[in-house]
Amino acid sequence: MLQSTLSTAIKFALASVAIGAVLSAFDISAIEVVKEMGLTPEAIRGLISRAFEWALPHFILGAMVIIPIWLIIYLLRPPGLGK
Rank of each mutant, 00 (worst) to 15 (best):
Ile48Trp: 02
Phe59Cys: 13
Ser49Asn: 11
Ser7Thr: 10
Thr40Asn: 14
Leu56Arg: 04
Arg50Lys: 06
Phe52His: 08
Glu32Val: 03
Ile10Gly: 05
Ala21His: 12
Asp27Met: 11
Ala18Asn: 06
Glu36Phe: 13
Leu47Met: 11
Leu14Trp: 01
Phe12Ser: 03
Phe52Thr: 10
Arg50Pro: 00
Glu36Cys: 01
Lys35Arg: 15
Leu47Phe: 03
Leu47Val: 00
Val22Gln: 06
Met37Phe: 15
Ser16Leu: 15
Ile28Cys: 09
Leu14Gln: 07
Ala18His: 03
Ser49Cys: 12
Ala51Thr: 11
Ala51Val: 13
Met37Thr: 09
Leu39Lys: 00
Glu53Met: 00
Ala43Arg: 01
Lys35Asp: 14
Ala30Val: 08
Leu56Gln: 07
Val17Asp: 10
Asp27Val: 10
Phe52Ser: 09
Ala25Ser: 11
His58Phe: 01
Glu36Leu: 07
Ile10Arg: 04
Glu32Pro: 05
Thr8Ser: 01
Ala51Cys: 12
Ala18Ile: 05
Ile31Ala: 10
Trp54Gly: 03
Ser24Gln: 15
Leu47Ala: 10
Trp54Val: 13
Ser16Val: 08
Ala13Gly: 08
Ala15Thr: 11
Met37Glu: 02
Val33Gln: 01
Ile48His: 06
Gly46Gln: 08
Gly38Met: 04
Leu47Gln: 09
Gly38Ile: 14
Ala18Ser: 10
Ala51Ser: 08
Arg45Met: 12
Met37Ser: 10
Ile19Asp: 06
Leu23Gly: 09
Lys11Gly: 08
Ala9His: 02
Ile44Glu: 02
